[in-house]
Amino acid sequence: MIELIGVSKHYATNHGVRRVLEDVSLTIPTDQSVGILGRNGAGKSTLLRLVAGIESPNSGKVVRHVRVSWPIGFAGGFHNNLTGEENMRFVSRIYGFDPAEVGQSVREFAELGDYFYMPLRTYSSGMRARLAFGLSMAIDFQVYLIDEVIAVGDRPFREKCEAQLAARRDHSSVIIVSHSMQTIRQFAERCAVLIDGRLELFDDVDEAARVYEAA
């Protein structure tokens, strides 16, 4: 499970302070897949970054009891002057995985061919995303974080990604944020709603949908 304990997050903007989360305490289960619904600009991506540990809350804390992925689809964390292979080695090492094994599975999955051995600055955005996705599949995360739909590459590759995620359902779960009910239903068994800095978890996706539509 992932615990949010009294988590507040706010940003200073030109129009004053924007509060994304206000004193949120919630336990997100990781034995079931969880959807998080929120309007555009409600702070869904920020919430995901807090869960991933990319950002720290202004107060409170996030405790991850399982190995949580970075938000999938976002190909940050790579160095442009290093090759795909060198980036893969770095990420494997910091998660304590064998670079040789991870490398083989990334090569097969990401379909980068010789580009795997070229610096990342030569990659298209689709290629970066494929590398990032392949890497997140090769490292055995217990929870995969997904921001909106998986907008990776072309349609066949997207289907391959979704199939890959589905195949992992028995030992991995998913936390997906979206403003689309349809996307949430596709992935999630439970659902939380993020409105005005408050995050509420419902046992039932339909119930969450009602609250979300009413707000």
Binding site: G53, S56, K61, R64, F90, R93, I94, G96
Partner: peptide, 28 residues
Amino acid sequence: MTQGATQLSLSQGLAIQRRVINAIILRE
């Protein structure tokens, strides 16, 4: 640890830090 990684013992934390620093050196 307000940073909020998984709650770890000191030795686990040190093992991760060693791994990370090792990866950073090789990358540098």
